[in-house]
Simulated scan of single mutants.
Amino acid sequence: MKQRIAIDMDEVIADTLAKFVHLYQKDHGLTLTPELLHGKELRDALPPELIDSVRKYINQKGFFRDLEVMPGSQQVVEQLAQKYDVFVVSAAMEFPNSLEDKLHWLGEHFPFIPWTNIIFCGYKIINTDIIIDDRTKNFKGFAGRTLLYSSPHNLLLTEFERVNTWDEVASLLL
């Protein structure tokens, strides 16, 4: 039996942050630089009058449909799928409009992952051997190996095994 890997979507294989950066520049003339975002949640880097806009954007139908793919993720995840049982696990239930968008996005960019291995959930209560995620809250209660995928909001955390790129994931797991 193959080991199982759970891979998060947003900020791990799908570049949600790049979309936010684009939208805030286009709609508000606000430039969100890596320095401004370092160690902060997106909402904490915004002026007070724009804090509510994060939820407005993320709840719009279509927000998740045209996200950029994280560099190297397609190739490495496809290689991982040869060695492991790979599951994409996304806490999508909080944003109901994201479900169809995410399913179609995965079908377009990761067609080798069958629908049976896509899990949209609230809490990530999963039984896998490894989890790759950008949110450490998803590591609570998880008994397997955790890999923290770097994103600006988690750069100050030091207590987890970290991966910065999909090449690093490949070197650890392939």
Score class of each variant (00 low, 15 high):
D167E: 11
V12T: 15
E161C: 06
D66K: 11
P71F: 10
Q82V: 05
P34G: 10
L50M: 03
D167S: 09
E168C: 07
L50S: 06
A143L: 07
I125G: 11
F63K: 00
V77H: 10
K19P: 15
L50W: 12
P34C: 08
T165F: 01
N138F: 03
I132F: 02
K124A: 13
K140Y: 13
P114D: 15
K56L: 08
E159C: 08
V86N: 06
P48S: 10
V89E: 09
P152G: 08
D129R: 00
F112S: 09
K102M: 00
M93W: 12
T116M: 03
L30D: 15
V86T: 04
D52W: 04
A91S: 13
P152H: 05
D27K: 15
K137T: 12
L147H: 04
K19L: 13
A170F: 15
L17M: 15
E35N: 11
N127K: 03
V88K: 09
L37W: 02
E49F: 07
E161G: 08
L23D: 14
I130D: 06
N138R: 10
Y123F: 10
L36V: 09
D8W: 01
K2M: 13
H153N: 13
D167V: 06
A18D: 10
H104V: 10
F64M: 02
K26G: 10
R55T: 02
N97E: 08
D134K: 08
K83Q: 07
G62P: 04
F110T: 01
L99I: 04
S98V: 00
F139Q: 15
D129L: 00
V169F: 09
E94M: 09
N127E: 15
L148Q: 05
L42K: 11
T128K: 12
W105T: 03
T136R: 02
K61M: 06
L147K: 00
L80F: 13
S151A: 12
A6T: 11
R4G: 10
W105D: 02
G62L: 00
T128S: 09
T128W: 02
R65H: 14
F20I: 13
S53N: 05
K26F: 00
P111I: 10
V163L: 04
K61N: 09
I58H: 02
I7G: 04
I58F: 06
R135H: 15
H22P: 13
V21E: 11
E161S: 08
I7R: 02
A6E: 01
L67I: 07
M93F: 10
K102L: 01
E161M: 07
